[in-house]
Design a protein around this nucleic acid. Sequence first.
RNA 1: GGCGCCGUGGCCAAGUGGUAAGGCAAGGGUCUGCAAAACCCUCACACGUCGGUUCGAAUCCGACCGGUGCCUCCA
Length: 498
Amino acid sequence: MLRIYNTLSRSLEEFIPRERGKVYMYNCGLTPYDYPHVGHARSAVIYDVIHRYLEYLGYEVIHISNFTDIDDKIIARSQELGITCEELTQKYIDVYLKDLKALNVKPLYGYPRATEHIKEIIEMVRTLQEKGFAYEISDGVYFEVRKFKDYGKLSHRNLEELRSGARIEVNPEKKDPLDFAIWKKSREGEPSWDSPWGKGRPGWHIECSAMSLHYLGNSFDIHGGGDDLIFPHHENEIAQSEAYTGISPFARYWVHNGMVEIEKEKMSKSLKNFFNLDELLRDYDGEVVRLYLISVSYRKPLSFDIESLEVARKNYEYFNESFLSINEDIERNNKGDVPVEDKILQWRSDFRKAMDDDLNFPVAIALLFDIFKFFNGNKEKISSKEALKLKEFLNEMLGVLGIEHLGERRASVLSSLKDRIMDVIGFLSKNEALRKELSSIDKEMAVNDILQSLVDLRAEMRLRQDFVSADQIRDALKEVGVVLEDTKEGTKYRLVST
RNA sequence: GGCGCCGUGGCCAAGUGGUAAGGCAAGGGUCUGCAAAACCCUCACACGUCGGUUCGAAUCCGACCGGUGCCUCCA
């Protein structure tokens, strides 16, 4: 039974969906006015693993995430750059979606945009006004917090506490400093839509309420987002949604992920300390970044640093090499008598126990080490048949964690190294002992044949006890990221980042 | 000021009442022409400090110290 922490009750709760066998899930996406950063990646990956685990448990998951593609920052930035808001937001939406793909985040049921749901938003604002929860003043329509008795139930604050911390008022016409705009009247030159209140645009995250209710209905199951959104964003979402529908709860489980920090400070665009995700993904494989992001409990802050990311890379390489090794074992028709069935039953039960316990990713990852270590330590004694069972079970777990490309990348990486390997051959040709043999290699050959020729040549040198030449080959290849390893089954190569 | 979170070995990080998972680093070993990889072994009388509750606490309570998030648009 899955237990998950609900911010609403501040406790772990048994997860029981609204509808048998189905989970309706919404998580707050981003405002696309700049490059996404590692924090956005963390959020997306966390909800992706939750999504995958729910599917693993047999649920159909209807999961959406929004783009808030109209707001003050977008308007300001597009004016700065002299482009339209659409051009600006489309650019960063494209970048974000591309990055999500690299991170192996499953495509969602939908990515609704605020600008595509103006009709629903206006309808909501209008109803709120009719019901007496909202009022119009000179610059927009405001939600009146004191009319909503449960205001503060998510962030566990009351109006008094909030007022004492409130900042200086912008519009003195507001009835209460805490009242917030759900519709903003637009100024000259700003994008706008016709409404009962004249030209204007959506206010404070009313789009999240409008779109989640539109697609998922009342009392949908999971609403997620970063924990910086608890107040005021999600608090306001609850207020405007429940006041609108008259039905509580707006969402049943509120899940919040911890922030990514840099040097003990929250990573954010406004602090200018963010790590550009797109750039990061040029240097690191998406699955490495993903592994890194789920190596800490989802609710805790994650302090981002390259050293830890390097550890994740190292761990990923260990998984990758071990996985390849299992594949080889399966192909080799190994004999063996170490059974694997009971181990798998235990691992599966441990995995579920960890994930059921509020999605304990780190423990699930520790299990991966357990499994690979077991295989590596018993390689000779595990038959191909058993190795296949092991692989199938690993795929089961890896599928939930979203690490699904172990052992698949070497072909593409290798072909990208062709030019550099040809350079290596040029360099090695300076050695008299190697020159003649190397001359038979030309760049028309397939890259793995070229590599195999080098491996064969080195074997010959070793046989001749010409370790100087043999080591020269090995060292030169290592420079370009191909590490040769002499094992009982012959020389193997391993690709590392340089 | 209010509402929270965090402080576990050199580093990262699980564990939240029953006597410290896992990873990285480090040291030793097996294997190897030498390596690398892999494997094996070692590596927290102890979980910020001080009190308390308990047969028993890293885990509960209190105080204190240090760090940090939110309190108007931030994943």
